[in-house]
Amino acid sequence: MGNSWFQFQQFRINQDRCAMKISTDAILLGSLLESQNPKSILDIGTGTGVISLMLAQRFLEAKIQAVEIDEDAAKQAEENFKVSPFAERISLFQGRFQDFCSLDSFDLIVSNPPYFPDHLKSHDLKRNKALHTDELSFEDLAENASKLLNPSGRFWVILPPRQMSDFRQIANSYSLFLNTVVQVHDRQDLGVLREIGEFSFQNTHGIIRKLVLKEDSGEYSMEYKKVLSGFLLGY
């Protein structure tokens, strides 16, 4: 998904000025998270704006606040919002999530966060900012999300399994508990590639679901095609 633009069924994403292009992670998070008719949504690290736009399509009564630290990505996300059918319901804050303030809490918070604290960095500073936790640590993410989530709200994140385990421990210290996890496998015979986690202030028994992206033949699975069907062309 590295093209300069990407066409969805109901909106188009231009991404030539964004360090991180549209990814499978973003598509999975935007399509698989669950929420009971949220009226207010916060998208932390919106990048191209794709998750905000997917949620605007899914939740027709929701107002969405996107946050993006990178200036170029923020400008492009805002342009993507303005030419979409959902422009009136999405706003953007350009800056660090730690500096974002809101008088109101949110029914739903989502994030496809950076997760490489110890990964060898490249010479691309913008890509480093999107991938590494220097600018947004798990501690800052959990602490600030806990302050902005309403008491009955839901906080969804997508991470590799090891990082999800680390984040879960930190989130627990802010009374955010993992209620649901979707374990994503590339194929049936391979290990967990990503975990999509739902956190809330309710410490309930966790539900584990499984999604396999591809059949042994390499074709997308029927379940994954169903996930994509409301958003991507050709599904």
Rank of each mutant, 00 (worst) to 15 (best):
M1V: 04
N3P: 04
N3K: 09
S4A: 06
F6C: 00
F6H: 05
Q7F: 07
F11L: 00
R12M: 08
I13E: 00
D16T: 12
C18D: 08
K21V: 13
I22F: 11
T24D: 03
D25R: 05
A26V: 06
I27A: 00
L28M: 04
L28K: 01
G30A: 04
S31D: 05
Q36E: 15
Q36M: 15
P38F: 01
I41S: 05
I41V: 12
L42G: 00
L42N: 02
T46G: 06
G47A: 05
T48D: 04
M54C: 02
M54E: 03
M54I: 07
Q57N: 02
F59K: 00
L60D: 14
L60F: 14
E61L: 15
E61S: 15
A62S: 13
A62T: 08
K63C: 11
K63L: 08
Q65E: 15
A66F: 11
I69E: 00
D70Y: 00
D72A: 15
A74V: 06
N80K: 09
F81Y: 06
K82H: 14
S84V: 08
S84T: 06
A87Q: 15
E88H: 14
R89Y: 07
I90F: 07
L92P: 02
Q94N: 15
Q94I: 14
R96W: 06
Q98G: 10
Q98M: 11
S102T: 12
D104E: 13
D104V: 15
S105R: 03
F106G: 00
F106D: 03
I109G: 01
V110Y: 03
P114M: 04
Y115M: 03
Y115L: 06
D118F: 08
D118Q: 11
L120K: 14
K121C: 13
S122I: 10
K126R: 13
R127A: 08
N128W: 11
K129F: 04
A130M: 11
L131E: 08
E135T: 13
F138P: 01
F138Q: 12
F138S: 05
L141S: 00
A142P: 06
A142R: 03
N150G: 08
N150P: 09
P151C: 09
G153P: 00
R154T: 14
F155Q: 07
W156N: 04
V157I: 11
R162D: 12
R168F: 13
R168I: 15
A171R: 06
S173L: 13
Y174E: 03
Y174T: 03
S175M: 09
S175R: 12
L176S: 06
L178K: 04
N179Q: 11
T180I: 15
V182D: 02
Q188T: 05
Q188H: 06
D189L: 10
G191H: 14
V192H: 09
L193S: 06
L193C: 02
L193T: 04
R194G: 02
I196G: 02
G197M: 10
S200E: 10
Q202H: 15
N203R: 09
T204G: 13
I208H: 12
R209H: 05
L211P: 02
E215K: 07
E215T: 04
G218M: 09
E219W: 12
S221P: 07
E223N: 01
L228A: 00
S229P: 05
G230C: 10
F231P: 01
L232Q: 07
L233F: 07
Y235M: 10
